[in-house]
Structure formats: structure tokens, C-alpha cells
Design a protein around this nucleic acid. Sequence first.
DNA 1: GGGAGCATGTAACGGGTTACATGATTGG
DNA 2: CCAATCATGTAACCCGTTACATGCTCCC
Lengths: 182, 182
Amino acid sequence: MSELPSTSYALLGLLSFGRELTGYDLKKWADSILRHFYGSPAMSVIYTDLKRLEEQGLVAARDVPTDEVRHKRVYTITPEGRTVLAQWVRNSPVETPSLKHAVAFRVWLGDLVEPERLTEIVEEHRTRTEAVLEELRRMETTTDPGLVYPRLVIRWSQRYYENERAAADQLLRELSVLTKRK
Amino acid sequence: MSELPSTSYALLGLLSFGRELTGYDLKKWADSILRHFYGSPAMSVIYTDLKRLEEQGLVAARDVPTDEVRHKRVYTITPEGRTVLAQWVRNSPVETPSLKHAVAFRVWLGDLVEPERLTEIVEEHRTRTEAVLEELRRMETTTDPGLVYPRLVIRWSQRYYENERAAADQLLRELSVLTKRK
DNA sequence: GGGAGCATGTAACGGGTTACATGATTGG
DNA sequence: CCAATCATGTAACCCGTTACATGCTCCC
């Protein structure tokens, strides 16, 4: 059994919590939490992946009527799907985390721009980070306490973005020195 | 003037420090530092991208003989290349940093595996993080103090991976509780 | 009336990885 | 002598993004 694309594991992972979900639901959930540490696939990928996973017997689909004439497809993970996912979590080589940090990259090239502009960029990043932290805080309070591991990761993420914020602040301090010196 | 692929900016960025470099040099340098916060492109991409950048007049190539019969191609950034890069750094919308953290993802799915196995995975991650930190420490001492911004980012990265390590330690503590409780 | 949210897909494109190919030199 | 390093490329492939396409319901 060869590897699935990582998006498929993401979907299986979301479904592994046992709920019956539509593609649309999966996207929303991925956007709300997975995005912050593993990325969130585009809708189009979700629908095509779900189809493939169904062919492979890793998820099961069922049509549920939403009104007299229309319906939606809800998906559940199958026992085989659960097995494949668990095997992957347990045995597959753990890829090193990959980070693509456009802000850090721009700071790295700081000589090419005015420190003032660089400061703006880092400030914007700080603001965005704040927003993520706010989201994570809300998520912590609204997540079922029974979900021990997801809660662990929410706190892990909080710590991550708190560091991100603190690092941004540190950069801003250092940039202000460079600006004055100019 | 449309956007270049982000790999091209990475190469222009490396060349913007003014040295004459081969594709091979660029790969080494990207592996040593860019990898830690922006990713490092595969060799094949580097060579094809350099060719394209040359066609676009953003880099200039020169053949330097290595022995009687062989030679290597060394690249420099052109004034136009520098302008394009600076414009990008200054004006292009800053993509939000993206993180793909296979370790966090596995922890998130912790219910699927034994806490002992999860602990192993996090421990391996911690070890790798330590190695990166060691690398960054060496890099800090060997980097030209005149390179203010790169040094800023080296310290930023150190902070980042120190947080990564501390977060791993925290996870390990929490996992040990879960293991005992079992 | 219109925008946001729910809901599902297809098609085109491309950036980037892996595999394949070649070959010289240096050091353990 | 063999592995690592230096050095350069091509080809196949695919994962994932963007754009395109459709239509309903609910609320302001």
C-alpha cells in the first residue's frame, strides 16, 4: 500500500473523529484548525480526494436529502480508512516540518528596502498573528474537553503563535534601532 | 511585470549579496540557511530557473574554466534583477507564513496510536530541532557581522527553534502523564 | 436586491519533487 | 577503492492552486 497524498491523510484525520461530514464541512474545519499547523486544502482537492478515497474504500459516502429535490453527500471514515490512517501515523517516516516564512525572507533581504517599509511589513505580520491567537483562544474554550489530543495541539499552536508575536516584537525593536541610526 | 515563482526570488535573494555563484553554490547556501525559514529548492529547479532568469536579464552568466577542458557557470545578479527583487520585497503582498508540521499533525491524531509511539515521534523531532539549533549557533559565529539583516534572521530562527524545542519538551511532559494514566 | 453561506464539482495550469544521466576530483 | 563533493542538466510526474461553472436559501 503506497502513500496517499498528504491531503488525503488530512481528510481521513478530520473524519477519524467520527462525525459524518460533507466536503464543505471538511473545508470549514480544516480552515479553522488544520490551517494553522498543517495547511488547508482547496475545495477542489477535497472533492476529488474524497472521490478517490471512496473508490479505495477508505471512506464511505451517503446521500442525505436537504429538501424535496436536493441532497448532499456526507462522508464517514471506514474501518479500513481508520487502519490506513493509524498505520501512517504510527509507521511512516515523519517529514521534517517545513516553513515558508515570507516575512522572515523579506527581513533577510532587508538591505534592499527602507527600514521603515520593513517595519510596516513586520507590523502587519504581528497584527495577523494577533488575530490567529484570538481565534485559537476562542477555539480552546469551544473545543470538547474530551478531545485531549486536539486540545494539546491547540495549546501547542498558541505557544507557537505567541512566540511568533514575541519574535515580531523583537524584530521591531531591532529595526527601530536601525532606523534611528540611518 | 508579473510575479516570478518564489524560487526565483530565493535565487535572486542569494545573489543579491553580490557574490558570483554557481548553481551548486546556490544550492549549498540555500540548504544551509534558507531551508530553515523559506525552504530550499531542488537542484533541478535551480538550474532551470537560472536559465530563465538569464533570459529575462535578471542574472548574468559567465563561463569560468575549472581546468584545461572543463568549466563552470557562475551567475551574478544584474541591476535589473536587483530592481525586480527590491520591488518585490517592497511592494508585493506578503503571503502569510505557511507551516506544514507533520509532528503536530500526528499529535493531533494521538488517539490513533499508543502514547509511547507518539512520545518517540516527538523525541525524534526534538533531536532534530537540537541539531538545527547547533547549526544555527555555528552559523551565527561564522557569518560576517556586516550582514546585519541575515544575522537578524539567524537570531530570529534560533528563537524559533528554541521555541520548537521547548514546545516539544512540554508535549513530552504532557504525554508522560497520559502514558501513566493509561 | 444582493451578498453571504451552503453545496458540488471540472479544467487548466504550473511549481516543485524525484528519478535518471554523466563525469571529474579529492580524501579517507 | 570507494564515498563524498563538485558540477550540470533533462524528463516524468503529480499535488495543489486558481479559475470557471451552477444554484439554492437566508438575512439585511
